[in-house]
Design a binder for these strands. Structure first.
Lengths: 200, 200
DNA sequence: GATGTAAGCAAGTGGCCACTTGCATACATC
DNA sequence: GATGTATGCAAGTGGCCACTTGCTTACATC
């Protein structure tokens, strides 16, 4: 890996542990096993380095689309939720730091909102499709359903480490339970969702 | 108000804007309109001041109990959710900072987890009571239901300011919609919940 | 072997920070 | 009027920080 990317990776790692003010150029240099001066030669300033490091990091790069045509809602939604929660949990430190610093330094983590917004709207169209394809038997507001699922996944990914008793166990089954709960509220038939895996 | 509490309040306010490292004693002194030296005379160190300020602040003091005996689930849950979301939203800056700094400085915001844990378990027993009193017509896991409602409220309170389009509108109706959605998944009769307000 | 480039190293600069010290002022209580 | 207490003010100390400068080393390419 070349020096530039080494520094960028180290910067993200240090930032996720210490935040902006705690990410001293010395610490980043040490983490990258690079001379401190090299940082300034490449990026000019700490500000510029961290901006590039975080905006360029994969914090906001979540690519795990829901199927365009729903076939087995429970399975599809469980899989998607699991992917989302895994993604969020793996990045929980950076996300927490970004949330804490966003008001003070919006230019740093400004793009952190893109991913959740996209995920929510993606989920929303999936729910609408469930309805138009006749999977649901209840009236519901897709915006509410998607905000709630995202909220549950987010909350779980951020908080479970600190307060494990506040969430359903075991952790790896939780995404499926959230998905199932949502589908029940939409009136998606249990059988249809439960049987399908055997067919495949 | 006496000098001591003035300083404590100023400390919380500065912390909520700048985090621990950004809360310089000079800034706190200015915010409290007090000489910087006075801070050290009262608290000895910045660390001690912020610890007392945050642990003593009402971040974790949420007192808004659910009724011991459910009568009108939708109304009760809506009211409770509204109170929770209002409380969280009013303190969102401090909460975000605490979340970001908790790993690095657990002694500072260590008690921040108490409130959500208590709220979740309170909610959980309320849901159990709904079931044992025959309000529900579906099987459900109360732990999942409560984690999801808390998650939705938390996510809304933390994120709506930054990405208003990812949440149901209008904001003041959202808590009721979350509550209603949950109750629907539990199979609590719509009529019973919807009519009740007119009876009172 | 000359030249260019990437990186290290040592030292320094000015600024902010937590915290200390010594002294002055105001006020209240005896 | 003396004493104690709460606070302000000015100055300083040592440390860390972002950032700069000047020089050196290592390597690759011509």
């Amino acid at each position: 890996m070349d020096t530039r990317s080494t520094i960028l990776n180290a910067a993200v790692q240090v930032f996720s542990q210490h935040g902006f003010r705690g990410s001293t150029t010395r610490r980043i240099a040490d983490a990258a096993s690079v001379n401190e001066v090299t940082i300034f030669r490449y990026f000019g300033s700490k500000e510029a380095l961290l901006q590039e490091a975080i905006r360029g990091s994969d914090v906001s790069a979540f690519k795990n689309p829901l199927p365009a045509e729903p076939e087995n809602p429970l399975q599809e939604l469980t899989q998607w939720s699991t992917a989302v929660i895994t993604h969020l949990h793996a990045r929980s430190s950076v996300i927490r730091k970004c949330m804490g610093e966003m008001e003070e330094r919006p230019e740093l983590s400004g793009n952190a909102t893109e991913a959740p917004i996209r995920a929510t709207s993606e989920l929303c169209t999936y729910f609408r499709k469930l309805r138009s394809r006749g999977f649901t038997e209840q009236e519901f507001d897709p915006a509410v359903a998607s905000a709630m699922l995202i909220g549950s996944l987010f909350h779980d990914a951020m908080g479970r480490d600190m307060m494990p008793d506040a969430y359903p166990k075991p952790a790896n089954k939780a995404p499926g339970k959230y998905a199932q709960f949502i589908l029940r509220a939409l009136g998606v038939k249990e059988t249809q969702a439960a049987k399908a895996p055997r067919e495949s």
